[in-house]
Design a protein around this nucleic acid. Structure first.
Length: 811
RNA sequence: GCUGGUGUGGCGGAAUGGCAGACGCACAGGACUUAAAAUCCUGAGAGGGCAACUUCGUGUGGGUUCAAGUCCCACCACCAGCACCA
């Protein structure tokens, strides 16, 4: 069979026939399968695309043959940095390069032979899509979840531009190598922090990889503790600290305030002003990396101010130090040298007292710092309590005297969405000197992105230079106003796309129909783990927000998530053009897409990924030939039941088929494609084994052959279709039911078990499958070898694992 | 540093606590062929033995169990995420 050449024919026919069309009228058995859409950031699909799209398409085909109405739309995440960088590199306008790349990629994706529902295609950089991105922004704004504030951005002084976090590599600009500095600019934020608790709780019910849930959990970073108010000595100011270890409060020897803290200037005494000023300026210059590095020695200076511990009245000094982060919790922390690593380091340098207030429950001696829980000492009325008890009692006391309260903090920060870039969704906000920030009225959306040619990033939104874009009347008061010159982070575009697919052609409303509630949420979502704390978190936030607006009736976007591993070069390193990676198309042209898909499926574990080796393609082609030969032969047997096989042989063949069907079904379900193909190889091997009987007429053999075609159809769709036609069956194999197995066929008359004496294998024997445990032991004892080993010895124990082993322990 | 994950033949990789290495590659032998390729069949973890057989084997060291790649403890190596979050 000429694998590469049959594919075009079938692709065309399937498309003509609309074979895989999604049936909107039959939503009860819908299955929404989605792969993370790709950036049109280059021209050629590489093996990674195939790994993602091709293999999950096989999963979709499998579901389809099981009778599901599979919805598997496809689109392009076409705004944002990857597309813009490609444009900057090639000098072609982003709109042109993006649309051209999309059309090339569409064709290549069609070559996969996927069952994608192209009628629902969406492209995020098109106005009919980004209208809804802007609509989402407006809804968030109206509900108080989009706001503007001064915030630091990454600034490259050499390129004279703001750059994204992903473009900062080890503190320097990825393009020119200049050290990146932080600069404050007015930015839009989405208040994802309002949803921190729900984003955390929702994880429990998701069928997602543990790893990913944990990444999100740590990213959200919930910390339960309390706030404690320390008054300054003069009673003029209150400094509130957050601590998760209030049980150590009697060990507080100092307080530390962050250099950027707004209260700081008020708290510095005149004689310390110069020192503190110098320190704060130095800290501001340090970039994030240097400041956050752990082996960094603790530094800080005394502010001259003393504060009073509300529980024991102790007077302790206030320091300023850059190991405290202004933006987390209150920006002030208490220093307990005996029970915190960082505080201990600080105390060593500044020679402040170390007071132990916790000891281990066994009262043994400890090396400080001791950060575990234990029993309180040197803590006045709380002595003797455990840390857990003390936390409760101390908060109660603090609340009683009005000096503290329970508090929960999260590491999660609000989502920064402003980008000083051209190639993105325009922010639908008008800044009016009188009315302030006013959202563009919904009926005026979309705000179109103007086509301009001077779009190089220069620190401010390039749109700011386009007067006809910027100049606008305020929708509220009608006065002259200005548009927002920035565009939205592309993650905004992708935060709801899966909701848009089902009703993508409706340009009046986004959540108009029952369709969305019926088709969504996504049943299985396939994509890389690298989006764990970005796209996958943002989508969950947006879905919960839309749920709160009563627009949808579910509050999680993706029920089940599967991460595909990474395809590596044959040297085990990341694939690149340099180490000779061919494009996917080159493989397809030479071997055909089915061989490529099968090879990928078989040679690596889907979740782990692994090294890719061209060799595999040759072998897979040989396997396909092998199937072709035996299946063609067996399927052409006429269906008279005139078997040359005896009962045992028939049973074994039935067993081989049933076992293969069972295992393949289970493997496909969990994306374990490599073992699925292995099981199919076993069945094919079994067919060759029985082929030596020169079968002439055999119903069983014919059915096995037809089943093999169906079983391989999801993995090698063109090959299976061709084979199906060649053996004279009616088009199309893809409309056949996926084979099911009869449980009874998995039971044969007899089964081989292992006989062990004292955990050593001494023999094997065939015993009837129906044997009870006692009968099995009796069979074992009748074995000559066993007899000789247990004769005259005490039998301590007899163990039977049905169908597997019989073990006798003797002494 | 913290948190997770991984570690199995020459290679890719399999194994609900129950025959380690499924399936495949590379390898060796055989059949077919004038020959080669292709195909079909057989063998194969490592060491020792002519052989029946035997010893050792899932990163290292301990433990639990009739039985451990799998569970527990400690350690080593690599990978990923977070990175002073009080």
């Amino acid at each position: 069979m000429d694998y590469a050449n049959i594919e075009k024919k079938w692709n065309e026919k399937w498309e003509r026939d609309g074979l895989y069309r999604f049936d909107e009228k039959n939503l009860d058995k819908k299955y929404y399968l989605l792969e993370m859409f790709s950036y049109p950031s280059g021209l050629n699909l590489h093996l990674g695309h195939w790994w993602n799209f091709g293999l999950s398409d096989s999963f979709g085909r499998f579901k389809r043959m099981q009778g599901y109405n599979v919805f598997q739309p496809m689109g392009f995440d076409s705004f944002g940095l990857p597309a813009e960088n490609y444009a900057l590199k090639t000098g072609i306008h982003p709109e042109d390069s993006t649309l051209r790349n999309i059309s090339v990629m569409e064709n290549q994706l069609k070559n996969i032979g996927g069952t994608f529902n192209w009628e629902y295609e969406l492209i995020t950089c098109k106005p009919e899509y980004y209208k809804w991105t802007q609509w989402l922004f407006v809804q968030l704004y109206k509900n108080g979840l989009a706001y503007q504030k001064e915030a630091p951005v990454n600034w490259c002084p050499s390129c004279n531009t703001v750059i994204a976090n992903e473009q900062v590599v080890e503190g320097v600009c990825e393009r020119c190598g200049t050290e990146v500095i932080r600069k404050n600019m007015k930015q839009w934020f989405f208040k994802i922090t309002n949803y921190a608790e729900r984003l955390l709780l929702g994880l429990d019910n998701l069928d997602w990889p543990q790893k990913t849930k944990l990444l999100q959990k740590n990213w959200i970073g919930k910390s339960i503790g309390c706030e404690v108010d320390f008054k300054t000595e003069d009673g003029q100011n209150t400094l509130t600290v957050f601590t998760s270890r209030v049980d150590t409060i009697f060990g507080v020897s100092w307080l530390v305030i962050a250099p950027e803290h707004p209260l700081l200037s008020k708290l510095v005494t005149p004689e310390n002003k110069a020192n503190v000023k110098e320190y704060v300026e130095k800290a501001a210059k340090k970039d994030e990396i240097a400041r956050s590095s752990t082996n960094n020695e603790k530094t800080g200076v005394f502010t001259g101010t003393y504060v009073i511990n509300p529980l024991n009245g102790n007077k302790v000094p206030l320091f300023v130090a850059d190991y405290v982060i202004a933006s987390y919790a209150t920006g002030i922390v208490m220093g307990v040298a005996a029970h915190d690593e960082r505080d201990y380091d600080f105390a060593k340098v500044y020679n402040v007292p170390v007071v132990q207030v916790i000891q281990p429950l066994n009262e043994g001696k400890v090396d400080l710092p001791y950060v575990e829980y234990g029993k309180l000492i040197n803590s006045g009325e709380f002595d003797g309590l455990t840390s857990e008890e003390a936390k409760i009692k101390i908060v109660e006391k603090l609340e009683k005297i009005g000096a503290g309260r329970k508090k929960v903090n999260y590491k999660l920060r609000d989502w920064s969405v402003s980008r000083q870039r051209y190639w993105g969704c325009p922010i639908p906000i008008i800044h009016c000197p009188k009315c302030g920030a006013v959202p563009v009225p919904e009926e005026q959306l979309p705000v179109l992105l103007p086509r301009i040619h001077d779009y190089k990033p220069e620190g401010e939104g390039p749109l700011g230079k386009v007067e006809e874009y910027m100049s606008v009347k305020c929708p509220v008061c009608g006065q002259n106003a200005r548009r927002d010159p920035d565009t939205l982070d592309a993650f905004v575009c992708s935060s709801f796309y899966q909701l848009r697919y089902p009703d993508v052609h409706n340009d009046k409303q986004i959540f108009s129909s029952e369709k969305i509630n019926k088709i969504c949420p996504v049943d299985t979502y396939v994509g890389g783990v690298e989006h764990a704390t970005a796209h996958l978190l943002y989508s969950r936030f947006v879905t919960k927000f839309l749920y709160d607006l009563n627009l949808i009736n579910f509050d999680e976007p993706f029920k089940r998530l599967v991460h595909q591993g990474m395809v590596l070069g044959s040297d085990g390193k990341k694939m690149s053009k340099r180490n000779g990676g061919k494009t996917a198309d080159e493989y397809v042209n030479e071997f055909g897409s089915d061989a490529l898909r099968l090879t990928m499926m078989f040679s690596m574990n889907y979740v782990d990924g692994g090294p890719w080796n061209d060799e595999g393609l040759k072998h897979m082609t040989a396997f396909m030939d092998r199937i072709d030969r035996i299946v063609s032969k067996w399927a052409s047997l006429d269906g008279e039941n005139n078997s040359q096989l005896n009962r045992k042989e028939e049973q074994d063949l039935e067993y081989a088929r049933a076992y293969c069907v069972k295992e393949m079904t289970e493997s496909f379900e969990v994306f374990s494609f490599n073992t699925a193909i292995a099981r199919l190889m076993e069945l094919v091997n079994a067919m060759y084994k029985y082929d030596k009987f020169e079968l002439k007429n055999n119903v069983l053999a014919k059915n096995v052959a037809l089943d093999v075609i169906k079983l391989i159809a999801p993995a090698a769709p063109h090959f299976a279709e061709e084979l199906w036609q060649n053996v004279g069956e009616k088009y199309s194999v893809h409309n056949q039911k996926y084979p099911v197995y009869e449980k009874s066929k998995l039971i044969r008359d007899s089964v081989e078990v292992v006989l062990q004496v004292n955990s050593k294998i001494v023999a094997r024997m065939e015993i009837p499958s129906s044997s009870s445990n006692q009968e099995a032991i009796d069979f074992a004892k009748s074995n000559e070898k066993i007899k000789s080993l247990i004769d005259g010895k005490n039998i301590i124990k007899e163990i039977v694992v049905p169908g597997r082993l019989i073990k006798i322990i003797v002494k």
